[in-house]
Design a binder for these strands. Structure first.
Lengths: 237, 237, 237, 237
DNA sequence: TATGAATGAGTGTTCATTCAT
DNA sequence: GATGAATGAACACTCATTCAT
């Protein structure tokens, strides 16, 4: 019951759409048209740096070097553009972050993933800020995000399950739950650092923070820092 | 008492106004006036449940049973009201969450704090959602929140330092940094669960999640689970 | 036909009153009441320095040390107060400016009158600015002012007629018309100097300007600088 | 050409903005746009007949056959439109009034200028009323007007200086000062007659008033009425 | 007599969206 | 495909005025 990402549809004013399949403006047929469409998305993504709420449609078209009316040849409204932008970004993210988990070097594996995560987050901080800004009020964005997070969680759990199989992990732990928590920690640190410009955080180099995070992952997961197999039986297993 | 969460600490990033004590409309002189003012704040806090952006001023006055113009007798604009609301909430939070840290029962202490935190977060989820929604674009809110988070961090660190003194903590740890991470984890879990209605989270009872979080705190901090026994009987077990 | 001071009644919005005898709020019966009323008028007169349009009723009451509601115990609205203020001022002016015209010393007489006029104008520049500001749109003020100007003209003409009788004035002159023009000159100089802070005027000492004005009066009226009687027949006439 | 009436001359008194070229909404690129802009200005100019304060923005757009929002495509606010209107009018005025000063026929020259002045004033009385209404409170308008008046004064003085060279003028006169006074007289007469509908003035035909004014200019300047005869026959009369 | 809370009509301004060219 | 003029609903905010205390 806790999960209701589609609940909470705003009542008054600028409400969100009924969440059907994106209809309206079809993909432009010409090459030029598709290019213009891209330019609009790019312009929007950049402007979102200053907050979704602060980017008017005319700001977007202007940044794209177009007139106001042009927008509607390509998008129904700003929300459609935004959702598309976010969907794309989340897909990229899922692909980009992937890094093989080497059970023999858990800490190095975690560090690697975390670094990649931060790298992506920083590069896309404008859009990731939008996700947070909109998720409370836009049901579709909330749903998009929910799905993305679950996919991440699942992948993490799958990775870690191999670790369990290898016997390096605390058995008394609800694995999925811990992954959720630790992923939350990482994500929120990135949000605070890259989107909120360090609000509430101590001013340390990113590398140091990354290390601290990795430590907590390791200890939280109950992984040994240098796996038992290696330590006790360098040859065996 | 030394830690005032609302203390004016300069934040990083996009600074703006000097943010002194809100001047504008002074406190109403009559009891009735003060009551009306309260009513407006209460009404706003409730409406914010559906998103800050969706609560118009007339919605607020209407919910408070007043005409539109009345608002401006008490507040300069919606932002002033909101800031005041948030400041108040953060102050309350700081007081409410406090719970003595018993070094002999670290896990129980962490559990207790976490439970209280969640209790408060859930009760004030509308405003806490506003904080997140606004922090990206409203520099004053960002500053308020920054200060509040730092105050929390400091208090946590102070609590834990006693643990260190007693020798129960990993020495190789950057204490403040770890506290920051773990606090982030807890905060974000609450945000996802109470504000985003569980978006991205598995559907477990709150108590179970709280336990998982506490485990991670303990292991992340390098605290022994039952230090008391250890301390009095270093050889035993 | 040129004279239509009561024409031009504004149509939309904040129109003027139907120009009846000031009804409503009667003179307060107590001493204290009358004093408060005075205070309001004084406060208004002062605030009008920054323009009639910029003085809100609450500004006036505040300046008088009263609450907003108090205003309406003493005046129907701001226009009533203003009209009363203007009427009073014009009456004072008429009395204050009076100075005997000595036919044997026309230039000295003109100088004297002009000096007094300027003295009064400067002291009451706030209200005299209001007269100009309102005359275009407030028919009652226009009428008040029209009457005041005519009274002045008449008195000037009467003074000068004695000069004519003494044979010192150009016969080919329409006396009333010339007086009108010269009075206009003086009035407008004062307006520009005291109300518009010298807009469009060269920056000379008031005394010098006064002299220049007197010269023009004298020459414009065709008065000898030292009257013929004195010059040719010091004893006679 | 040296005298630009709109030249940025620092005014005295309550200075405000730098008053550079109005940026804001740029000139519309299409013919239709420019036409609409013109229509708005024309509509405003007409409505100002009933007083600046009584012309709301919707009145203006309505009179121009447009919706309310259209206004802001062309102007920042009513003040910008008004300033532009006034600037334009003052420039036109400066050009229109020009009439060659014939030293051999001073009175005819003065009459001619005065007639033209009145003609222009009457045709633009709505805007000229606005100038007076606003100059007290709008620093930019005050500055505009100040500059325009100075340009006029300067031109008058230059005209008259030729008279001096020919020896027809009172030497004891501060020329610029007298010009200022006489210009004030003429301007104020026009204001009273055309804007205030004759308030305070006797009801004479315009031609008669014009003659009286010219007489005063001539005598005030110390110009002979028929200098030509005098000049060629210095001994005569 | 005075207070100040409350009203509500009025107005300026913004901005997504449509549409003729 | 693109323009930019035009719309109009939405909203914030002001201020004279009323009224219970």
């Amino acid at each position: 019951m806790a999960q209701q990402p589609t609940a909470e549809r705003p009542t008054s004013g600028q409400a969100t759409e009924p969440a059907g399949a994106e209809p309206a403006a079809p993909m432009p047929s010409t090459e030029k048209g598709r290019d213009t469409r891209r330019r609009l998305m790019k312009a929007a993504a950049q402007l979102y740096e200053k907050g979704y709420a602060n980017a008017r449609i005319t700001d977007i078209t202007e940044a794209a070097g177009l007139s106001a009316g042009a927008f509607y040849r390509y998008f129904e409204d700003r929300q459609q553009l935004t959702r598309e932008l976010l969907r794309e970004m989340m897909d990229e993210m899922y692909v980009f972050i992937r890094s093989p988990f080497d059970e023999t070097q858990p800490i190095r594996s975690v560090l690697e993933s975390t670094r990649k995560y931060f790298e992506f987050y920083e590069a896309h901080r404008a859009l990731l800020g939008v996700v947070v800004e909109l998720s409370q009020t836009d049901a579709e964005v909330a749903q998009l995000w929910d799905a993305a997070k679950r996919a991440f969680n699942d992948r993490i759990v799958r990775s870690l399950e191999r670790g369990i199989a290898a016997g390096q992990m605390r058995g008394d732990l609800d694995l999925a739950l811990a992954a959720e928590m630790l992923r939350s920690m990482t994500e929120y640190y990135a949000f605070q650092r890259f989107v909120l410009n360090g609000s509430g955080l101590s001013d340390v180099p990113l590398e140091q923070a990354t290390n601290a995070i990795a430590e907590i992952w390791i200890s939280g997961m109950g992984l040994d820092r240098e796996p038992a197999t290696k330590r006790t039986a360098p040859s065996g297993a």
